[in-house]
C-alpha cells in the first residue's frame, strides 16, 4: 500500500501542491474553471513557515490509530479498510470541532461542501484519483521530490504513529521528563503480550 511521504527539507515553497489539491478536489478538475465554481474547493495541504523561513508541507498522515477518527462523535471520520486512508464523510459531519482538537498535526479545516453546510475536511490521499489509477495530485505536481508516493514503510511511519498513539494514550516520551511511565515501545510490548495470551 502506497502512502504520500513528505520530505520537508526539499520543499521550496512554490505552493504547487496547494493549487493542484484544490483543482483535484473541484468539480471540473480543470485549473481554468476550478476557481470559478460555486463552492470553491480549498486545499488540504498546508505549507507553514518555520522560524528560519523554511517552508514545511503539512498534511494528514492517516495515522493508525487516528486520533480524529476516535474523537469524532458522529462517526463521520472513518478508515477505509482496503486502502487504510482516513476519510471524512461530510454528510455525517456536524461541524463540532472535536477532530481539530484531537489532531496533533493541525491538518483539519472546515469549509463549505454544499450550499450552506460546512464540514470538516482534510487530505483524503486523493482516493478518487487513485481509483482511476492516478497518483495523489500533490505528489504529481511536486517537482522537487518533497512529496513522494511510496510503499508504506513501518519504520518511516513510526514517528507518525508514535505521535498519534501518544496523543491517544497520553503516554509520555521518556526523554522529555523523568517519569515512571513506560515508553511506547514498552507499551507496545505489553499489547503484544496481551494478544499472545
Amino acid at each position: 500500500m502506497k502512502v504520500v511521504v513528505v520530505k520537508p527539507e526539499r520543499c521550496v515553497g512554490c505552493l504547487q501542491c496547494r493549487f493542484a489539491c484544490s483543482v483535484a478536489h473541484s468539480v471540473s478538475e480543470s485549473q481554468f474553471t476550478a476557481p470559478y465554481e460555486t463552492i470553491v474547493s480549498k486545499p488540504r495541504i498546508h505549507i507553514g513557515l518555520t522560524n528560519g523561513k523554511e517552508p514545511f508541507p503539512n498534511k494528514c498522515r492517516h495515522c493508525n490509530p487516528a486520533p480524529c477518527e476516535m474523537a469524532c462523535i458522529t462517526r463521520a471520520i472513518f478508515r477505509d479498510e482496503a486502502t487504510g486512508i482516513v476519510l471524512i464523510n461530510p454528510e455525517r459531519c456536524i461541524n463540532c470541532g472535536m477532530c481539530a482538537m484531537a489532531c496533533p498535526f493541525g491538518v483539519i479545516r472546515y469549509h463549505f461542501f454544499v450550499d450552506r453546510r460546512t464540514s470538516a475536511h482534510k487530505c483524503d490521499q486523493c482516493f478518487r484519483r487513485q481509483k482511476e489509477g492516478k497518483i495523489p495530485a500533490c505528489v504529481e505536481v511536486c517537482k522537487v521530490g518533497a512529496l513522494v508516493f511510496e510503499e508504506y514503510n513501518k519504520d518511516m511511519d513510526k514517528a507518525t504513529d508514535q505521535m498519534a498513539s501518544l496523543v491517544y494514550l497520553g503516554i509520555r516520551e521518556k526523554e522529555h521528563e523523568k517519569s515512571p511511565y513506560p515508553t511506547l515501545l514498552v507499551h507496545k510490548n505489553i499489547l503484544q503480550e496481551i494478544k499472545r495470551r
Binding site: L15, Q16, F19, A20, V23, Q31, F32, E140, V141
Partner: peptide, 9 residues
C-alpha cells in the same frame, strides 16, 4: 507536466 497552475492562469 503538470505545469505551474499559477502561471497557467
Amino acid at each position: 507536466e503538470p505545469q505551474c497552475g499559477y502561471c497557467e492562469l
